[in-house]
């Protein structure tokens, strides 16, 4: 019993609990504007977590995560605008996630049962993303309507409604908690999954596909499942993002937008969801501050940080920080 509680007392867990508490009390000492910024950071963190799952855990390199996110947001936007009833929006969210999971599964089936792997998965998802973005960009005309909702081309879909729960429309604070709780749930599920059998099979696939296959794992099937879940998470992030900004546009599906979460996961610590969460929030916070400063050095500073982190801290900034702290502060190997 004592051993077990000691095993839980890692710097990763301590930092996480501190953050959890901070997140819970944040609304008491900040204004509505900053709170809504955090809702945005949290939804993008969920996107990053979807990559931790698919890349960090299962070793599948997806470069189309922003496209899945954007498509999820489009589906939510179309359904909720077409329905025009606040009460329906939470179902629109669920439908968007389910549709995207099905689509993710279909794409994954196409890839993994065809023996496509490694960097080629990244390339297929990248092409899928660019094709989707190019397509959505040219839907400005009147003929591009789904359920009577104009897709809006490059300017995107505007006026996406907020989510209501139990007849109560989620305003700034409520929406903050909504995204916060979803983020914590997703995070917990991903961390927990690591110590389940499913998690072990993911690790097995990541480390050595052919050996896992020889041990009797149905590798493509597991890959399809994890890819579909990750696509669903990306769509969830997209829905939250579109609710936050009441807006989604082809720009959000771009190659750059797909690269950013990959970069976050790689720099924070690929195999560690806590590190991803920390780095994602810091990244969006920092990039917002740099933009607000009006300096044109924005991209240069971000680029330099990424290079420095990956060159000198290859395991990721926070992953390494956790293990160093465990070693030197908590005196544990």
């Amino acid at each position: 019993m004592k051993d077990k509680s000691k095993a839980l007392l890692t710097s990763e867990n301590i930092i996480f609990v501190v953050l959890l508490l901070l997140g819970l009390v944040l609304p008491t000492f900040t204004n509505a504007y900053r709170l809504s910024q955090y809702s945005y950071y949290y939804s993008m963190t969920i996107l990053a977590l979807s990559i931790t799952l698919v890349w960090g855990y299962a070793g599948i390199f997806s470069f189309g995560q922003a496209a899945f996110m954007g498509l999820g947001a489009y589906i939510y936007g179309i359904l909720s605008i077409a329905a025009g009833r606040d009460g329906f929006n939470i179902f629109a969210l669920l439908i968007a996630v389910v549709i995207m999971m099905a689509l993710g599964a279909a794409l994954a089936y196409f890839m993994f049962y065809g023996g496509v792997n490694d960097v080629f998965v990244g390339l297929i998802t990248m092409c899928f993303g660019i094709a989707l973005q190019t397509f959505m960009g040219q839907t400005a005309g009147e003929e591009w309507q789904v359920l009577g909702v104009r897709l809006g081309g490059y300017n995107g879909l505007t006026g996406i409604p907020k989510i209501s729960l139990f007849g109560f429309k989620l305003g700034d604070v409520a929406f903050y908690f909504f995204t916060f709780i979803i983020l914590i749930l997703v995070y917990a599920a991903i961390r927990y999954s690591k110590i389940t059998n499913a998690g072990y099979s993911l690790t097995a696939i990541r480390e050595n596909r052919s050996r896992s296959e020889l041990f009797g794992f149905d590798v493509p099937k597991i890959q399809v499942i994890v890819f579909a879940i990750s696509t669903g998470l990306a769509a969830l992030a997209g829905v939250l993002y579109s609710v936050w900004g009441s807006y989604i546009a082809p720009d959000n599906l771009s190659m750059t937008q797909s690269t950013i979460p990959v970069v976050i996961v790689a720099s924070g610590g690929r195999k560690n969801p806590t590190a991803t969460v920390l780095f994602a929030i810091l990244y969006y916070f920092l990039s917002g501050k740099l933009a607000a400063s009006g300096s044109s050095l924005n991209y240069i500073i971000l680029g330099a940080i990424l290079i420095v982190v990956l060159l000198f801290i290859p395991e990721g900034l926070f992953s390494t920080l956790f293990s160093k702290m465990d070693k030197y502060i908590l005196r544990r190997a």
Partner: peptide, 12 residues
């Protein structure tokens, strides 16, 4: 402020 030619930045 610098919106970086990025629509999400514009919103933020």
């Amino acid at each position: 402020v610098d919106a970086c030619s990025d629509n999400t930045k514009y919103q933020e």
